[in-house]
Design a protein around this nucleic acid. Structure first.
Lengths: 217, 217
DNA sequence: TAGATTGTTAATCGATTAACAATC
DNA sequence: TAGATTGTTAATCGATTAACAATC
């Protein structure tokens, strides 16, 4: 995946966290916040917060801080959450179904237009008001409906094939839950959710914790 | 979360990826691999791979490279995958059920001992041979069964409360799917899977891509 | 032995933190 | 105006990459 700007991924990955905490402040009807207060809430340093925000513009005011609502809206726009996205899910197994039923994504603007599977037993079923279709129709569906984001919830062995198909159909981004690193052209975005890698980090850290505790004794 | 060793998290997060690719090589019956070949496969530099592996010991041999099976087993041990872990899921909604049905985690040694929920309608149901219990019994269950890992799949508003309860019951690690940053004591490990943060990264990158494409024209 | 490739140190790069002038 | 807090530059820290001697 090629990058198109000079904003580092480290910064980009903090943006959704700012957005979430600002949303919390907003629902608590807090109007203004300083980088120092945000630092306490988020755990990032005040300096880092000011640096991060300044990548995108001067949203603050000296002596005052940041207007919560304004900053929330601005970061929403930066994240591209001021519009909707057409999505499809491929793979109607456990993960695919869970994502399909996860209403908060729909609320954020990620609209589910189709679910696809190979299994004749699930084709035709309706999940969260979306019918499961045959994966043979995937390419045509993406093209005809201008789908932008493909959510890959297929088994490892089929995932690259599905990704290739989506690329041919002109998909712009993929959210990949399969435990593979997909090969796609530079202009296609892939965001991985590698659950087992996340899980194995826990066992690693548990082990590390145990070893160090032993040593200290 | 306190760290107990001087291995950086950047290194730790690459270990599961090495493990996965070595597993792939192993099932393709490839016996040896050099850091250069691993570099091609993983996308990390050969230098980084050698540095990473050397944090844990000299697994390679000059002039030869690494024995795939040996390295796979060693990294498995480093990740703590040479034993089993007792887990419980809290929250039998979409995500909780998907995780419960995800058999590959069980195969990796993460054994599901219980599922808990507040909803009387789901209490008593059986998911993947595990009965859903009342969350009121969670603390007792964790203590009596020496559960080490708690998987939090509850709504945002209840998650910190559940985490507190687990900490009191002596849980060692948590896999958190709720969109909150849990507050736990230093010796308890928390690994977050913040799905919406991951999703919002896609919309950000799509927008960035679009803007830069426009400019180039 | 000669060639290949590791282990490891040094150099570079990038990200985070500190500091402070600008200014509300 | 005085106090507060940003925006921004400079300093520090840590992670990645390059280089090469060691050695199989």
């Amino acid at each position: 995946m090629e990058r198109f700007s000079n904003i580092s991924m480290a910064v980009v990955r903090r943006l959704p966290k700012y957005f979430r905490y600002l949303g919390d402040l907003l629902s608590n009807e807090i109007r203004r916040v300083s980088s120092q207060e945000l630092s306490k809430i988020t755990g990032f340093t005040a300096s880092q917060i000011r640096q991060d925000l300044n990548c995108f513009g001067g949203f603050g005011q000296q002596g005052y801080g940041y207007n919560v609502e304004e900053l929330y809206n601005e970061i929403g726009k930066i994240l591209g959450l001021d519009r909707t996205y057409k999505t499809v899910i491929v793979g109607a197994g456990n993960v695919g179904q869970a994502i399909a039923n996860y209403t908060s994504f729909q609320k954020s603007g990620f609209k589910l237009h189709g679910i696809f599977d190979v299994n004749p037993k699930v084709i035709g079923l309706s999940i969260n008001d979306v019918t499961v279709m045959d994966v043979d129709d995937l390419e045509k569906f993406i093209k005809q409906n201008d789908i932008e984001i493909g959510i890959i919830c297929t088994p490892k062995a089929h995932s690259q094939k599905i990704a290739d198909l989506m690329v041919d159909a002109g998909i712009k981004g993929m959210w990949n839950f399969a435990p593979v690193d997909l090969k796609v052209p530079d202009n296609v975005i892939v965001e991985n959710v590698h659950l087992s890698e996340s899980l194995f980090t826990i066992s690693y850290l548990l082990k590390e914790r145990e070893e160090t505790t032993k040593k200290k004794k």
